[in-house]
């Protein structure tokens, strides 16, 4: 008994670590082999990050509180939140650009993503010429957006464009040609069509990579259990694709928010600023209107919107990385 008691005493589980003890360990870790020791190695990258990422962002936010034409000879005048007031209440284009950016993001999440998934599912089957189709669908993704813009602008040309020729051949409309880019109500969607054409193939490649990770055994066992194609997709494939779906969504959102080249190349934000978006409007205010205060106010709004959409992804991805340690 005594022995047992002794054993019980000696085999006592270690007491839970107290909080001060944890802190001490953390401090020790940082001090001895952690953060401080790694600082010399981190410093160059950290300095570059501060100079080229953090400082420009702070500078942009600071400039949004000033009135400045961009000339060194012209003093920067502090105006507080006046630029934001002007932006939200007097700028006739700002809300149009917000609306178009939102439309662009929402449509991007729905159309090119779904299209990419459908193409990936189709080209994941044993088809003749599968690799050729994969390449053909992916090629638009590697073209420079400004080249895509030029190409589509010519396709939309009301006098010589392919859509006009088709409409004339088929006697659709009044024979005056297709004028998608000329209609303020349609222009943004006409540019978006070019975006879908370019980005869907990229999404397809990501989904194809994700599909290679779907367990064949699970698919087969689902079929043995009598699941039809839709049920297999809904209950086996789609859950397995979840990480890929999130990555595709985030990349698509990021691509959408910063859309610039296609709009510049196809409409320049027109007609009548009807296809204007936040990134282009920020550039226009700063570099074309020479109003750097207002331009940076737009950039700051864009920054906040981007952070709202991207930070959850960063948290999720960090959490995922921690879970796998």
């Amino acid at each position: 008994m005594t022995k047992l008691t002794d054993t019980r005493f000696t085999a006592q589980p270690p007491a839970p670590r107290s909080r001060p003890h944890q802190k001490k360990n953390l401090v020790q870790r940082i001090g001895k082999g952690g953060f401080i020791a790694s600082l010399p190695f981190l410093a160059p990258a950290l300095a570059a990050y501060v100079v080229f990422v953090i400082a420009p962002m702070i500078s942009a936010v600071r400039l949004s509180l000033y009135q400045w034409s961009g000339y060194n000879t012209d003093p920067q005048v502090f105006v507080g939140f006046k630029n934001y007031v002007r932006l939200f209440t007097q700028d006739p284009v700002f809300w149009t650009s917000v609306q178009n950016t939102v439309i662009w993001v929402v449509l991007s999440i729905i159309i090119p993503t779904s299209l990419g998934l459908v193409m990936a599912l189709a080209l994941n089957q044993p088809l003749v010429g599968r690799n050729l189709f994969r390449s053909v669908f992916y090629i638009p993704g590697v073209l420079a957006p400004i080249a895509v813009a030029n190409m589509w602008r010519w396709m939309y040309n009301p006098n010589y464009g392919v859509f006009s020729e088709i409409s004339k051949t088929l006697h659709i409309g009044d024979g005056s040609g297709v004028t998608f880019l000329s209609d303020p109500k349609v222009a943004i969607y006409a540019v978006f069509a070019a975006f879908v054409w370019q980005i869907a193939g990229l999404n397809m490649v990501l989904f194809l990579a994700g599909l290679q990770g779907v367990s064949k055994e699970l698919v087969e066992s689902a079929r043995l259990d009598g699941a039809n194609n839709w049920q297999v997709f809904r209950n086996v494939t789609l859950p397995a694709l979840r990480p890929t779906v999130v990555i595709v969504m985030v990349l698509t959102i990021v691509h959408s928010i910063k859309v610039f080249d296609l709009i510049v190349g196809m409409t320049g934000g027109g007609p009548a600023q009807s296809s204007q978006v936040l990134a282009l409007w920020s550039y226009t205010q700063s570099f074309l209107n020479h109003d750097f205060g207002l331009g940076n106010a737009v950039a700051t709004v864009l920054l906040v919107v981007t952070l709202i959409l991207v930070v959850p992804y960063l948290i999720w991805s960090t959490k995922g990385a921690d879970d796998h340690r």
Binding site: P184, P271, A272, Q273
Partner: peptide, 21 residues
């Protein structure tokens, strides 16, 4: 006009020209 006024002049002009204003 200055640049921002010009841009607004063009916006209004194009809206009128396309029947949007």
């Amino acid at each position: 006009f200055n640049q921002s006024q010009t841009r607004e002049y063009w916006r209004i002009q194009n809206l009128v020209a396309t029947g949007g204003l």
